[in-house]
Each structure stands twice: as C-alpha cells, then as structure tokens.
Write a protein that binds this DNA or RNA. Sequence first.
DNA 1: GAAAACTCTTAACCTACATCAACTTTTTTT
DNA 2: AAAAAAAGTTGATGTAGGTTAAGAGTTTTC
Lengths: 204, 204
Amino acid sequence: MLAGIAYFYRYYMFEELFKNIRQKIAITEKEEDICRSLFIPKKFRKKQYLLQQGDVCKYTAFVEKGLLRSYIIDDKGTELIMQFAPEGWWIGDLYSSLTGEVTEYNIDAIENTETLLLTNQGYEQLMQQAPVFERYFRLLIQNSFIAMQRRLKGNIILNAEEKYKNFIHLYPNIVQRVPQHNIASFLGITPESLSRIRRQMTER
Amino acid sequence: MLAGIAYFYRYYMFEELFKNIRQKIAITEKEEDICRSLFIPKKFRKKQYLLQQGDVCKYTAFVEKGLLRSYIIDDKGTELIMQFAPEGWWIGDLYSSLTGEVTEYNIDAIENTETLLLTNQGYEQLMQQAPVFERYFRLLIQNSFIAMQRRLKGNIILNAEEKYKNFIHLYPNIVQRVPQHNIASFLGITPESLSRIRRQMTER
DNA sequence: GAAAACTCTTAACCTACATCAACTTTTTTT
DNA sequence: AAAAAAAGTTGATGTAGGTTAAGAGTTTTC
C-alpha cells in the first residue's frame, strides 16, 4: 500500500516531464524508469535559491509546477532577468555545468515551485543509459537557440513599447504571474519606462 | 591520375570541417566518407548570396575559407547583421530549414568564400548513417546557444563603447576583415556612432 | 492589525545615441 | 586613370528612454 502511494506520487511528479519528452521523442517504459531513477524531485519556496552567483552549477532543473527565474546582477546592482521558467521549462546554467566554472547567474523561485533536478553526472548517465536523450536535448537546445536568436533580434530592432507588446504576445501567461518590474528587467528597460508605456497603451 | 587529383582536391576541401568535427567527437574513416558523400563543395564570390529573405533555407553551410554574413533588413531598410561566419563556422537558418517556412535572413559573402553545403535531407541522412553526429550537432548548438545568450546579455547591459571593445576582444580577426559599418550593424549601433567611439578611443 | 517591505505610478530633468546632412577618403569599375 | 560607388568622418540637432525623487497603493511579516 505504501509502495502504491509512493508509486502514484512519483508518477504524478513526472507528469509534465514525460509530457514534454514525448513531444520530442518516443521513449520506452525502461527509459521512463531510468528517468525516475536519475531525476531528483525538489520543491522551492518563493524566493528560495536554486543557484547563486559564485556557485558552480550542479543541477539543471525541469519545472513541474510553479515558476523560476534566472538573472544576473550588473555592476550597478541592477538585475537582468535572462529567463522565466514556468511549467514545462528547463532552467540552469549550461556553461557552468559543462565547464565547472563558477556561474554569474542567480536562479530563484517567483512562485512556490516543484522541480525535477538532473545533476551533471545524472545527465551523463542518462546519455549513456538512454542515448535517445542525445536527440531530446539536441532538439531542446535547438529550440532555445532559435528563441534566443529572436530575442536578440527583437532587443536590437524594437523600441521599448514594441518589446513589451511582443512579450505579451509571446508569454501572455507569464505577464499575469510575475511582478511588472520583472518584465521590465527581462526586456532590458526600467520599471518606470514600462509603467509609462502601459499608461500610454491604455490612454490610446 | 585524375582520380588522384580529385581525391587530393576533396581531401583538401574538407580540411577545416574534419578539424572542426574532431574537436568535438571521434569519427572513423567510414564516417569521413559519409561526410564526403553528403557535403557539397561550393564557392561564393564576394557579395554573392547563399540565402535571401523569402526563400526557404535548403542548406546549412560550413565555411572552409573566407567569410560569410547573415543579416535581416528591418522596416526602415537598415541591415542588422546576426552573424559573421569565417573559417570553421556554420551558417544557415535553422528555423527555416526545420520548418520549411520562408526565411527572413539574407546570407552573402563578405569575401570570396569556399563552403561545404549540407542539404536538409543530407542532414537527416547524416544522422541516420552516422549517429555520432547527433552528438556533434548537439555540442555545436549548445555552444551557439551559450554564445547567443552572452551576446544578448552584452547587448542589454553594455553601452556602445563597451560593446565595441567587447567585440574586438572576442573577434579580433573579424575586426580586420569586415568594413566598419558591418561591425556597427552587428552591435546594433549606427556607423556614425561607431566612428565617434573609435575617435574617442584613440584620443585618450 | 500595525509596521515594514515591496510594487507601481508620476513628474522634472538628463544623456547616450540616433538622425540628418555635408564632406573626405578609399575602393571598385570600366 | 577617370568616374562611380562605397566607406568613413564630422558637426548640428533631436529624442527615447534613463535617472532621481516623491508619493500612493499592496502585500508580507510578526
């Protein structure tokens, strides 16, 4: 009976992950089990850190429920949000994980969040034990790259208002869930500017 | 004798490519041959297009010698250079290749350039015939993603002068090889601004 | 449920960089 | 080697968005 509960619990925990994986590749029962053995469920309460600058990144996190953010802090002490990670997104610092160098990123929870952590070794093991994941991660990073390229482009050619409209269009759900100044930070504009832009948008 | 020359020629053509591949993965003679059968050597003269906006991207190019650029043209008709691709770099439009949608990118040659083209089917065949390349491309895109992320960050937090200095630091060789207004375009600043920045830098 | 800590708004002022326009220098074409 | 085209410079002027500062909500904490 206890085992049954544990099984159910584990099954429930991996729901989003397997949904996400199956959108990209076909996996067998066995490969599912490998995942269950390698991923570590972990919850983060609001404001709790998954990674802090100066650390070496040990995990890449998959978000099952909730919302994380990664950001850097520049010379003047201003935050620049690099990524929001709601349900179904991965977050971490690939560079630090790969090289073992310390990270400049901070990752913390905007909402109470349930994650599945994959350690760096876990990642290697996954690749060896279930090589289909080579393809899964290739596709994942491919999409991230394309998204990042677009974001860069938007960042250069759009003005502040267009950036905001574009953001609303791309991530309507995130707009509802994060404080406004976080969106400003993601867009690379000041909270004051965003506030003015929003007023102008309603005035017209 | 002719076969000998052809062989030598082909060997020579693939030099950079194999060097690049071997930095990431180990490949066998057989896999080398598969490459030789799938890549199409093609030269581009200065200003010649590899891809134009409105086309569907059919090839991804590896640069053996020379220098290509990819850029988009915004509403006001200004070019934004997304990438310079000197020897040892890949260039194309991943999104258009993957989806079959038309591209917004233009790719042309800044210098006379020798490339190896991989068609979209060629890519699929390569993956099937030599699955190690799944890993090669994953690593490749992983690095591109990290680089893109850094570029975005720099673009948001640095001022124009810092962006230029950063560029010189990262790509000293490219600075020598491309016209100054192309660098301005890559950095998302005007040629006039870059000219003024350079004057200020020598004055001090 | 009062205090403290965030979050958002508004206004006055400032600045980095864009725009426009004219001119010089370099490179390419014929 | 002249003409044309492309690349780079310089100055005057404009402006989007940053900065500073103060106040008004809102949410969290104890």
